[in-house]
Design a protein around this nucleic acid. Structure first.
Length: 624
RNA sequence: GCGCCCGUAGCUCAGCAGGAUAGAGCAACAGCCUUCUAAGCUGUGGGUCAGGCGUUCGAAUCGCCUCGGGCGUACCA
């Protein structure tokens, strides 16, 4: 379905062109002054400069060239050169009817689907997920769903950190604690035990310990580096130990991600890129890109336009082992081979920008990645505590993601909690808590830092995930009551409106009926007919108009990789619905035709909200 | 040192391919529940958009400078 903005754009760019001005100047935007108009065009003022003509004259020229249509209610030229647009209620309601009848509320998927790999999550094996992993998971998941909805072929890859120094640290620390284990005996040739010599709890304690120790004990660090190298070069006992670490850790990671309703198509890690490293390194050497510098094998990635020195990309460390540049590059080799992607998106902490800049340049320069492949760095900001510093527990440690989820769920209180069965209540709290966390994260533009304030999340007032859910529950509640009292309103679907299938919307034509009912034989296609009111209140029109922006807004959000755009949008919808809700008692409506139109409107509202929260990665309960 | 980012209401943040009266939420104050869930709605107060200079008919938005804060800067990820 063509969006209203697209329709208006067509009209105004044509008019600008016909009046002798650049068509682009006719671009229509949503009004910044809803008190004056619904849409506006600002191009006449920019045109003034280009054509050395008064903006008002230009605007009037354009107006004269607008063909007759049944869309525009009022077009006004206002000083210094704004073109203010109001569209006909009939057009809005016609559009809503089509939206309701169409699949996906009228959103048209990409005609030329792209293959997109999204690299997000990035958990390190053997380290519990903490708040820092929250953003990558939550943002990446939303981008995955948005891209998929937009019609792209999306491959989500967790890209586990499973092959770097952290593994060497753990292995070395284990060798200090339990030196007699067969894994450390190089002469051992038998089978290794099937049971891991440690528990998840042990692992979670070992890594921070080893990491801290390596920072003050140089010999220890060297030993860990050697262990990393030995692991990478395939030392048998280390590989066996590594496999244990993976098994124990991965199960826990999967549990955590599933709790966040985040899932990946691939659970690949750095280690999966390992087979691609030797050939890649050879290629880089053969083509003359890689050379030795300070003992390491590097590729220069400087460019003339750089206004700061940029260090070379390290392909192999001086001890010959792989570093994260190596595995990221080799992973690109792998992805090219497996998927031939049009785009690879990295949802990573923005502090890693330089690393990825080097990797991207190196990949392009050496031909690991095709020139036309879009390598995107989607850097996100830090999650800070109330003090503005990176989020910590009260004790000063990092807070585990699972603890954080527990805390938020605990703080959710539900009305009439006592009456709800325990299992149901737990699920409800999980649903609401997850919405609070995800919305609280996604409402911020990805690249900005934000303050994670648990108390604020607990209050659930104002612009929050629970507010959106609450609005949806309100709608469901009205529909439930109507379904019980007046099942005939729901046609063949009976009371099952919540299933949100296209055939559940028999009201798609309801607005037209309303106009015919209230007006004087108005026909939506006949521009000559007198305008008649289709909306019972201004707040209803306002809500309706906001709903028509769905496709346009979603396109923007996908184009800009910005889930926050969807958050602002659904907040606006929810807010406008709530205003309307207070304005108009829907259940009290006696005129059945008007009632049908209201049912159509709120059902559409619910559907649009539902699609959006699903894209954002959370869901709404039936009651709360 | 060099580079990148940030500085907007008491607090947390939007807005930044220049556009009309700079918006939300929280906090404060005043209202709205015998009627669809008050996790809601309405209203009030609160701002030299860090400061300066410049470009422009028009600057929170673009450029330059100053101040203040954060981050990054070859063998961690």
């Amino acid at each position: 379905m063509q969006t209203i903005i697209e329709t208006l754009n067509k009209i105004f760019t044509e008019s600008f062109k016909n009046a002798g001005y650049d068509a682009d100047l006719g671009r229509v935007v949503v009004s910044a002054r809803p008190d004056l108009c619904q849409f506006q065009v600002n191009g006449a003022m920019s045109a003034a400069k280009l054509y050395r003509k008064a903006p008002l004259m230009i605007a009037n020229d354009v107006l004269a060239d607008i063909p007759a249509n049944d869309i525009l209610e009022e077009v006004a030229v206002v000083a210094p050169g704004f073109i203010n647009i109001k569209i006909k209620d009939a057009f809005i309601s016609q559009y809503l009817s089509e939206m309701a009848a169409a699949a996906n509320c009228g959103f048209t998927p990409n005609e030329n689907p792209k293959t997109v790999v999204i690299d997000y999550g990035g958990p390190n094996v053997a380290k519990p997920l903490h708040v820092g992993h929250l953003r990558s998971a939550v943002i990446g998941e939303a981008l995955k769903r948005m891209n998929r909805f937009a019609g792209n072929k999306v491959i989500a890859d967790a890209h586990l950190g499973d092959f770097g120094l952290q593994m060497g640290l753990i292995i070395h620390e284990l060798s200090c604690r339990q030196p007699t284990l067969p894994y450390f005996d190089e002469t051992y040739t038998g089978d290794y035990p099937a049971e891991a010599p440690f528990s998840l709890k042990d692992l979670e304690e070992i890594y921070p310990f080893a990491s801290a120790k390596s920072k003050e004990d140089e010999a220890y660090l060297t030993a860990a580096r050697n262990a990393t190298k030995d692991l990478q070069s395939g030392r048998r006992g280390y590989r066996a130990l590594w496999q244990h670490i993976m098994n124990v850790s991965l199960a826990d990671l999967k549990r955590n991600y599933s709790r966040l309703d985040v899932d990946f198509d691939l659970w690949y890690g750095e280690s999966d890129a390992e087979p691609y490293i030797p050939a890649m390194v050879r290629m880089m050497k053969d083509k003359g890109f890689a050379y030795e510098s300070e003992g390491a094998l590097v590729v220069d990635v400087k460019e003339n336009t750089d206004n700061a020195p940029i260090p070379p990309c390290i392909i192999l460390k001086s001890d010959g082992s792989a570093i994260y540049e190596t595995t990221d590059l080799a992973t690109l080799v792998q992805r090219e081979e497996d998927f031939h992607p049009d785009r690879v998106m990295y949802v990573v902490d923005k502090r890693q920008v330089l690393h990825f800049e080097r990797v991207f340049r190196c990949a392009k320069k050496t031909g690991v990645t095709r020139p036309e492949t879009d390598l995107s760095f989607i850097g996100f900001g830090t999650v800070n505590g109330k003090d503005g510093k990176p989020f910590k527990t009260r004790a000063g440690g990092t807070m585990k993601l699972s603890e954080l989820l527990d805390t938020v769920e605990e703080k959710v209180s539900i009305k009439g909690e006592e009456e709800i069965p325990a299992a149901e209540l737990a699920k409800l709290k999980q649903t609401i808590g997850l919405a609070a966390i995800k919305y609280g994260d996604l409402m911020n533009p990805c690249d900005s830092n934000y303050i994670f304030d648990i108390d604020k999340f607990a209050s659930f007032e104002g612009n929050t995930g629970p507010y959106i859910l609450y609005t949806m529950v309100r709608i469901k509640s009205i529909l439930t009551k109507l379904a019980a009292n007046k099942p005939e309103l729901f046609g063949t679907a009976g009371g099952k409106f919540c299933e949100i299938a296209a055939d559940v919307l028999p009201q798609s034509g309801a607005y037209i009926e309303v106009r015919e009912h209230l007006g004087t034989g108005f026909h939506p296609r006949a521009s000559s007919q007198q305008f008649s009111p289709a909306f019972t209140t201004d707040s209803e029109r306002d809500l309706a108009l906001t709903l028509t922006r769905f496709s346009h807004t979603l396109n923007e959000a996908v184009k800009k990789d910005a889930p926050s755009i969807l958050c602002s949008y659904i907040y606006e919808i929810a807010n406008k619905f709530n205003v309307f809700y207070h304005d108009k008692k829907i259940l009290a409506e006696e005129d059945e035709i008007v009632l049908r139109s209201l049912v159509a409107l709120i059902t559409l509202t619910l559907n649009v909200l539902n699609i959006n929260i699903n894209l954002l990665g959370f869901s709404a309960p039936e009651k709360m």
